[in-house]
């Protein structure tokens, strides 16, 4: 009972013209499809709902709204209040290849107005999609032109709308979705705090928390030298690496992709050591540490010991009321929370 109360349902609308790529990205991010599988998808009839449990109390209530004109008409009229009320996030997908960009923007405007009416505090993310179809040297400019034009049509959301250039063929899709999810996780700050303390204890250069099914990053902590890491896109690159690996394992072992999880992956080199291991029911933790067997072994042990504390922040599917209450309390007062998490060894 008190667990369901803690879980935050967030309604997310996924909209855009038919064929823009909405269901494709949903299947890749949430259902273990690979990019070349999406050609099989048919047009979405009306709305497809999915509920996705996520790290940190989040229950994503995703509405994949079929984009054919008749359906959109219906969302804007008969179903207006039903579709557009209590929306946390609207994700609007534009197809970069569309020959009717102006018409797409007009349709976007009508949706924006319906959203402003029923959910004025929603956040809007615009994905300019299928960027792989544009030659790489033209991408940035085209993206900026389109974004500017769309922002101008965003009415009351104009100052806050965020734009991403995406493609299912590279990690840009993960970059966009990571930002969206981060925005939605209610207790992201507490998770981050806990992660930071763990990083100190295990002497990690970097710790990254990944959601297990989607491989999206929940949050990360970067320390010392690693702050100068020249690969600023590494978080989504690792998402993409993990996802691909998961599919590869699934294909080879015959285990369904949803459960083809590794217990641990280690990489040791002269410059760094890295491992990724299960942290909680819904998360994997990736750790980059200095190249030392001692530090490596100690870090693995300390991370195992820290599991229960992170479990408390995860979706509470296995309730342990006493602990949860204690934590819920400490989460409200940072000083107490810090006291509660100090020393993972104990």
């Amino acid at each position: 009972m008190n667990t369901t109360k803690r879980q935050k349902q967030r309604k997310v609308l996924l909209m855009g013209k038919s064929g823009a790529g909405k269901s494709s990205m949903r299947s890749i991010v949430f259902s273990n499809y690979v990019a070349k599988d999406v050609r099989r998808l048919g047009a979405t009839i009306d709305v497809e709902h999915s509920n996705i449990k996520f790290m940190g109390n989040l229950m994503l209530n995703l509405w994949d709204c079929g984009g054919q004109d008749g359906f959109v008409e219906n969302y804007l009229t008969h179903q207006r209040a039903h579709v557009f009320s209590s929306v946390a996030v609207l994700i609007f997908v534009f197809d970069i290849e569309s020959r009717e960009f102006a018409a797409d923007v007009i349709s976007y405007s009508s949706i924006i107005r319906a959203l402003a009416e029923h959910s004025p505090s929603a956040a809007v993310f615009v994905l300019i999609h299928k960027m792989d179809l544009v030659q790489s040297r033209l991408r940035q400019q085209l993206f900026e032109e389109r974004a500017e034009y769309i922002r101008a049509a965003s009415e009351s959301f104009a100052p806050t709308v965020e734009f991403f250039a995406t493609s299912i063929w590279d990690q840009s899709l993960y970059k966009a979705w990571t930002q969206i999810i981060y925005f939605l996780i209610p207790n992201a700050r507490s998770i981050e705090g806990l992660l930071r303390e763990l990083a100190e204890v295990v002497e990690a250069r970097e710790l990254i928390l990944y959601e297990r099914t989607t491989c999206l990053m929940v949050t990360h902590v970067t320390r010392d030298v690693e702050a100068d890491n020249p690969f600023s896109d590494r978080f989504e690159r690792i998402s993409s690496i993990l996802k691909t690996h998961k599919q590869s394992m699934a294909k080879h072992t015959g285990i369904p992709a949803g459960s083809a999880n590794f217990a641990e992956m280690q990489i040791k080199t002269g410059r760094f050591m890295f491992f990724i291991t299960r942290l909680t029911e819904n998360t994997n933790l990736a750790a980059s540490i200095p190249p030392s067997e001692q530090v490596f072994n100690a870090a693995r042990i300390n991370i195992t010991l820290a599991r229960p504390r992170f479990a408390e922040l995860d979706v509470a599917s296995k309730p342990r009321p006493a602990v949860q209450q204690a934590f819920a309390h400490s989460a409200e007062t940072p000083a107490e929370r810090e006291a509660a998490v100090a020393g993972f060894e104990g």
């Binding site: 072992t253 999880n261 590794f262 217990a263 280690q266 080199t269 530090v295």
Partner: peptide, 20 residues
């Protein structure tokens, strides 16, 4: 600590264990 870098293995090595 510089001494740490010395203990690292220079030939990269990696291992995956499966959950199931």
């Amino acid at each position: 600590d510089e001494s740490l870098t010395e203990t690292g293995n220079n030939d990269a090595e990696s291992l995956i264990t499966m959950e199931r």
